[in-house]
Design a protein around this nucleic acid. Sequence first.
DNA 1: TCCTTCTATGCAACTCGTTGCATAGCCAAG
DNA 2: CTTGGCTATGCAACGAGTTGCATAGAAGGA
Lengths: 188, 188
Amino acid sequence: MALEHAILVSLLEKPGSGYELARRFERSIGYFWTATHQQIYRVLKRMESEGLLAVREMSQQSRPDKKEYSVVGPGRTALSQWLHEPIQPESIRHELAVKIRGAAFDNPSVLIREVERHRQVHSDRLAHYQAGELRDFTGPAAATPLDAGQELQHVVLRGGIAYERMTIAWLDDVLATLRRLSTAHPPA
Amino acid sequence: MALEHAILVSLLEKPGSGYELARRFERSIGYFWTATHQQIYRVLKRMESEGLLAVREMSQQSRPDKKEYSVVGPGRTALSQWLHEPIQPESIRHELAVKIRGAAFDNPSVLIREVERHRQVHSDRLAHYQAGELRDFTGPAAATPLDAGQELQHVVLRGGIAYERMTIAWLDDVLATLRRLSTAHPPA
DNA sequence: TCCTTCTATGCAACTCGTTGCATAGCCAAG
DNA sequence: CTTGGCTATGCAACGAGTTGCATAGAAGGA
């Protein structure tokens, strides 16, 4: 149940509503954990009923009311306990890699467009991460010195940057391979 | 339904039983797509009933009987069709990254052991991939020249190697950060 | 002989995650 | 004034994935 823990972390960093959490899962937290709003609302409700979170109804002007969630004692304890438990190292799920191996049983050139599209997405993500890094950690407007929380956010972001860079380089390798095979065996 | 397609690819590469597929999902295919035997048996049964696969009962000596599955016409068509459809670029799910950000709300040093353990696992995987690369693609015993299928398997394996290398380097960065923060704020 | 390990298949129950749909207030543009 | 977009929350149904358990033949060691 890592979603639960991701929510605890995000709400400890800053309390917010389900909607706001869904936004955060599209950026920051979402770089390494994704969730849809439906999932988030469901889990928030459960966590609140389990006493991990507190809710506060907020009436807003010029916007619908919202429910602001924040972490209470037992939630913090649950997070701390989870931090002490081992988790099993990630198992990758890379659908594109399945496709690439599958291309051996069709024409490799059909994948070129698809791989180029993926490359573009990763390239955009990299630019986005780098802009965030400059804004929050390495630029002139960044806090100095960084506190522990910021240092940890930064090292996670560096992981995202390293991942995107590696992926882009690999996709270039894939493209070169696909193009080579397409030349050798032109489309029927 | 990428599991279905991963199974098609694996069975096209070589027909086999559910048990054998489960083994393959622990190595080769499993480098980028994981599945348990229960999942595999369930999906194989469904795919067979949908006419994508053919089964052959094989009685074996000194072993229980097995059912050997192989891809038939409609299965191949289904794979080919899937290759032409776009898929959405991967969203990472990195539980360890959630933990690292969560460490800001506990003591960062509690994660050092955990991160070291993960580093070891990735380091072992890298060694395993590199041994496979030498055996199948770059060593003296490798086929020359490689056919299209082997070229594609190789480029996927290179992706796995790049991923593990990148991850190990990042985990070293994480460890350095955690150690720095632990020194600055020694355990209570 | 008994215990464990490996091959081989499967059910049942559950949790996690996705997709489609619905509601509702407010704002701005056409 | 209607349409579309953004904030905000939620239900229902389904599909994907995990966990625990069960069965069973054969091999090999204590």
